[in-house]
Design a protein around this nucleic acid. Sequence first.
DNA 1: ATGAAAGCGCTAACAA
DNA 2: TTGTTAGCGCTTTCAT
Lengths: 342, 342
Amino acid sequence: MADKVTSLLVAERAGVSQSAVSRVFTPGASVSKKTADKVRAAASELGYRPNVLARAMVSGKSRIIGLVVAYLENQFYPVAIEKLSKALQKHGYHVLVFMAAETIENIDSVMDEILDYQVDGIVIASVAMSSEIASRCDAAGVPVVLFNRSQDIDDITSVTSDNYAGGRKVAEFLLAGRHQKIGYIAGWEGASTQRDREAGFISALKEADCALAARQVGDFQTEQTRIAARKMFDVPDDQRPDAVFVANDHMAIAVMDVIRFELGLKIPDDVSVVGYDDVPPAAWLAYNLTTIRQRANLMVDETVKALREHIENPQEAITRRVAIDGPLIVRGSARLPKGWIG
Amino acid sequence: MADKVTSLLVAERAGVSQSAVSRVFTPGASVSKKTADKVRAAASELGYRPNVLARAMVSGKSRIIGLVVAYLENQFYPVAIEKLSKALQKHGYHVLVFMAAETIENIDSVMDEILDYQVDGIVIASVAMSSEIASRCDAAGVPVVLFNRSQDIDDITSVTSDNYAGGRKVAEFLLAGRHQKIGYIAGWEGASTQRDREAGFISALKEADCALAARQVGDFQTEQTRIAARKMFDVPDDQRPDAVFVANDHMAIAVMDVIRFELGLKIPDDVSVVGYDDVPPAAWLAYNLTTIRQRANLMVDETVKALREHIENPQEAITRRVAIDGPLIVRGSARLPKGWIG
DNA sequence: ATGAAAGCGCTAACAA
DNA sequence: TTGTTAGCGCTTTCAT
């Protein structure tokens, strides 16, 4: 194993001081072209690259963003992570991943680990955190952004889609389609996304004097969702809902499988199904799922923006709650309103 | 922002030396219970946690594993990453993610970035690398494991499924099902997985004196794959293959969409389709795809094992090429051989 | 524009 | 078992 090439080595070879080398590799530092050339020559001959960790120690900036994520089975997350990681890379940051179970205690211990790495910022996707740990991050001066989840109590920056508005859109669409008995399959009830989607959905139904015909909980989990779907649809014809809004696409697909292949019903003839997220499989023709699109690109942009503001300007940055509107993507899994124009 | 709590501060408060504090937080170091208690008390009062980066500087171990990954749209990768990340976490490592485009130049520059972080090891998923960069890692003493890809020329540790054997199994199954005209849709031809799967497939066909009836390239990409499927199946009935092996599930699903919804053919009555990977959507009933399972758990275990061996025992560790056998998962997308017993 | 010196927070020898 | 000393590789005053 070759010796480590340090800035001191480069300095000696270039006949300059160590500080000179440092300055050459620090954008915006004052170095003469002559020195810079000498240093660069020596550096590339030696194959020198600055040690990010050493730099982090003294500068206090690690250029690492901690990412907490709970379950990647829901395709929305891998897609978002890919975009997030690329966007951060563009700004010279990299993502350190922490997988977490969804319990608060677990999140908190994971957060401790993250802080140990002196990250410059933290993105929490798909989970909530205790307010205690939130203030700990605050005390450590590490900005936190909640991605696709928000918290009412605490004042934490969050980026979500406008779940309430999304829920309303689904209700309005289903109502316009003259559905009579409308059901809802909920996600994990601790999730703000779940609550907001349901609240918006219910509120729009109420305004049309329509009560929810059935409700089950799928908990964002496949098996749980199948059970929920059976409870809702494996009933006498006259009691069966003719439409269902499922809290996310991942669950909606499981619901469709039960409806069509276990119960032999037709979609959308017997039952209309609408999901939420617009993950890639929603567009696969065997599902062709009508859904609300979460605009991952915009959500990522806002996340990166908020992070950078807080990192580069800790004083002036303010906590924000961004909710991005998402369009209804009409496909074939739900009966169309009369006279609907695609 | 509160002052940073350092080991020195804890030492003072506990009335011991800084080294004592260090030892308390180093598993297996020799400290008396009395000292340990004092230190722990002081530490928790102050909210002290060791700075991983500082520790990394002096110990030379960052406990960071760099992960290079190209595209998460293929569900196999998110699933694998989740498992990998969890497994490494269990051993006190964390994963720093680098998204890369698939070009070699890009990989190389990404590898430079990774090395800058003084990672203890590198996992490269879904991409290949130049031998030049491989030896650079070697020189830096950083072990590299290729995940789900292998390289013939260079001597790099790799973990894959046994793609050749998998390809053979598919051929044997299709042959046993009395298929006459068998086609193949290839992935990106630079990928070892693609090549091995095809080679195994073809070799078993040959042994049965069966020539490939059609071949197209899908490049692991959805749109490309649709085009390939149309070329292969949008032909007169008597020229149409009655079975197709698609190099991975992600492409197989796109192929099924084209066959059923664009061309109005029946699966498996008109065409049998077999994929590779056994990603979660393969089990969704609307696809119900017969496929070869990649045993992600075993692949991850082997990856972690190899990594740890090389990190903890750089002298004795040897480069290995692990190929894990994967079973054929028989579902409904391919016609069964006569007398087949599930 | 450049160099000398100090030190980020920690662990690893060494001595006691 | 414990404390002292040195130093990981870098950036950052502070002089010059």
